[in-house]
Design a protein around this nucleic acid. Structure first.
Lengths: 146, 146
DNA sequence: GGAGAAATTGAAAATGACAATCAGAAAGCT
DNA sequence: AGCTTTCTGATTGTCATTTTCAATTTCTCC
């Protein structure tokens, strides 16, 4: 199994792009980062150690990660695109707390299977899907009863 | 079962808002409209008969519809928020063609049931969800083989 | 029916996330 | 090293959405 660094450098090479130190730095920060961060989150985090890396570069590089398949873009409807490192073996969807913003990942193979059946029913050729459950996390649900 | 007009006027009254002829006009156009339209779609449609209704008013009124539960906001990730009249009895999700933009509604009670199980597993209190399948509709899938 | 308070309207401007621009800098091929 | 191509980052542009604000309309209470 290729790791994410290899996937990215292979992609770079295959497209005739260049290996720059900014991209290397951003890739490292990306892999070390917790999931579900926005461009701004990563930019601010990087700026501490690397004040010379611009917002646009972070943005473009994250797009590259998504293109080559090591990141996926998330949109929870709050007007900010988030990213997460993508592990090809393990697809998951998300529970989002509408109160505190907590994000929990879940997998449910039976839902995946039913999705395929739905697609077949309408003769669609599915490329990707988005499945998010919004509500209150245990902590916020409890707090709201008080 | 209350109809959507009643739900809206009750909501207006309960919030101390006012019944204006613009809101009445927009509500009628909204109910007569096919699903999955953007603010701009409805604005342009209205403008033919009611050139005096502004974009901002259409936008604010659609937000009101969503607030009181007679509309739902859809976001298919193309940078435009869409709306659809919400029929409380009949929840559905969407298939979206990434090539031609065709939108098909589907229902799958077994998925809904599994979602509840997932929520229970994580002790989440679900308020709503988003479930969209993106891919090629039959026509575009066929065209791509050529 | 009409005065007064409060909400609404619509044109225009502001906002904010994202994308594009462009001149100077860096990378990589030979 | 020289040369060509890509990259960078500050800035600007874009576009849907939201806010502003003065004028208008609605609704309540006489």
């Amino acid at each position: 199994m290729m790791d994410q660094m290899t996937i990215f450098s292979d992609y770079i090479r295959s497209k005739g792009l260049k290996n720059t130190c900014q991209r290397k730095t951003i890739l490292e920060a990306f892999l070390a980062s917790k999931s579900h961060f926005s461009t701004e989150d990563l930019y601010l985090k990087l700026r501490k150690q690397h004040p010379n890396i611009g917002y646009a570069t972070v943005h473009r590089t994250l797009k590259l990660f998504a293109e080559c398949g090591i990141a996926s873009e998330l949109d929870f409807g709050d007007g900010q695109t988030r990213f997460e490192p993508l592990d090809i073996n393990q697809h998951h969807d998300h529970l989002v707390c509408t109160n505190c913003g907590l994000i929990v990942e879940f997998t449910e193979p039976r839902i995946e299977k039913l999705q395929e059946q739905v697609a077949a029913r309408y003769n669609f050729k599915i490329e990707r899907h988005r499945h998010e459950l919004y509500g209150l996390c245990p902590k916020c649900a409890k707090a709201q009863l008080v």
